[in-house]
Amino acid sequence: MTNEIRSNQIRPDWWGKASAGAILGIGLALALVGLYAYLGPGGINAPGGRYSLMRYLEAFIWIAVFSTCFLFRSGRAAWVWLGVANLIAFAALFACRFHFFA
Rank of each mutant, 00 (worst) to 15 (best):
I26T: 13
G43D: 08
I61E: 01
R50M: 05
L28T: 06
A20Y: 08
L39A: 13
R55E: 10
D13G: 06
L57W: 05
S7F: 14
G25S: 07
W14R: 15
A64Q: 02
N8C: 10
V33Y: 03
G40F: 01
R50Q: 12
A29C: 08
L35F: 02
I26V: 12
I23F: 09
R55T: 13
A46S: 12
D13C: 04
L35R: 05
A37T: 10
G16D: 11
K17Q: 10
A22D: 10
W14C: 15
S19V: 10
W62N: 00
G42Y: 05
I44T: 08
Y56G: 05
R11N: 11
I26P: 02
I61M: 13
A37D: 05
S19M: 15
S52R: 00
P47I: 06
A37P: 01
Y56D: 11
N45K: 06
A22T: 08
G27M: 12
Y51G: 10
D13I: 07
A31K: 07
R11L: 10
A18T: 14
L35G: 08
Y36R: 04
E58I: 04
G49F: 04
S52G: 15
N45W: 07
G48D: 11
G49D: 10
G43I: 08
G27H: 06
P12E: 10
S52M: 06
G43F: 13
L53C: 13
A37F: 02
R11Q: 13
I23P: 02
Q9Y: 04
Y56I: 11
R55I: 09
A18L: 13
L57R: 12
G27L: 04
M54K: 01
W15S: 07
V65T: 01
L35H: 00
K17R: 12
I63P: 01
L35W: 01
P12K: 09
A20N: 06
A46L: 13
R55Q: 14
L28F: 09
Y51M: 08
Q9T: 09
G48P: 07
